[in-house]
Write a protein that binds this DNA or RNA. Structure first.
Lengths: 125, 125, 125, 125
DNA sequence: GTGGTCTAGACCACT
DNA sequence: GTGGTCTAGACCACA
């Protein structure tokens, strides 16, 4: 986690995205506790409320649960549910938009193949 | 043009993007006049200031010029300059982000090839 | 709206409930604007954020929509959806709990009939 | 006793309510010992302090007494005092709120009579 | 004018 | 220790 905040999006949203990334990358396993609101706030010099708001989003999304007086914990199945939801969103909305954009910009799709295939190779390795 | 506004982005930005789309798709040729602020405002039930702001962005980007008493006109070379700028932005920022996302979601890159190749074929036609 | 806050529940929740009450009682019709965050905050001497949080809850519940730069508006169908949801919740959870409590306290159900019937009469009038 | 904790109310309060229920239902007779703090804590995977807090509430309400080295015991008269207090609370606060809610939701009071009368019959049996 | 976000600092309830 | 709520005051984007 680096403390570099993008100004286009609220910090709490970026924080939420970071935690999601940690879960997807297996750096934050199911059942584990999220770093405490206070700790995160201190580490990044944020207001605890800002951190709280990020965590609350995760609770609302059903990825994290609050255990009163104990902290916030990654729920069982969080990763798989995340993967499924994000993949669905990707295939339904992001990919078509991407393709549309490629088309509109008149970019040679063959140029993209290189980039994309590199990913394939990395995955195979 | 449909009057469906996305809440994630300001309306004036979405309007600007629509005009850009029209130019890229040759639906609004260089030298032609943009629909008047007042017409657009009426059609989409928008505040004229919002429409003005969108048009002003296009002026600031050097794509459109205001001719006093006549309206706004697409400048010569607007399309090619647009293409270049957006392509640069695409290759520098959007493509890497896309590739990163594909990787993180663990999506089989081969599945994407189909979609992308369809574009290639359509372009070739 | 009286400015008497109960200490057992967060103010933003009570505010949300008040707005819901206004909608159910036809004091805030569908399509109408909610009083602005700033106005409510000033009137009740609250922090705008507190009011905002209440309004956000209503948005999340699908009862109210935000029109950017204009304010918050009661959605069409808000009242009927509210009625249905609250009735369902009442019949499913609150009524059984109430009945259970009556039973456990050994209260003569006939005493309740009087109270409840008064409501019936008032409704019929 | 099921170990299903509601998040709207503190666990120690829910625990207290369960014990009260046991007393009202004659499942925990006056003079009997409450299950030990440590047993309850183990059974429900709770912090013993939480259980202690629940028991302390009962002591403060004059329903239970602590006998050093022996445990907690239901006091004589606990049930009748409980009944009186809860009934008073019910008639003063809960019933009016219930009636108000019925009215606002526009629920036909006659439908409620059925439910309530069933209780009467069960009590008569 | 509208709502959204953030900080700094305080107090509270729960475990 | 944990998170939740609120205030006071500031700045921003949008219509």
């Amino acid at each position: 986690m680096a403390a570099d905040w993008n100004d286009n999006q609220p910090i709490y949203r970026q924080l939420r995205d970071k935690v999601v990334g940690l879960i997807l990358d297996d750096l934050l396993a199911e059942g584990n506790a999220l770093p405490s609101v206070r700790n995160v706030a201190a580490e990044y010099q944020l207001n605890p409320i800002t951190v709280s708001k990020a965590y609350q989003e995760l609770v609302d999304e059903g990825l994290v649960e609050k255990r009163r007086g104990l902290g916030m914990f990654v729920l069982e199945g969080a990763k798989s549910r995340l993967l499924e939801a994000e993949r669905e969103q990707f295939m339904r909305a992001e990919l078509p938009a991407f393709v549309e954009r490629v088309k509109r910009l008149g970019i040679d799709p063959r140029k993209l193949l290189d980039k994309i295939e590199q990913v394939g190779e990395r995955e195979d390795t």
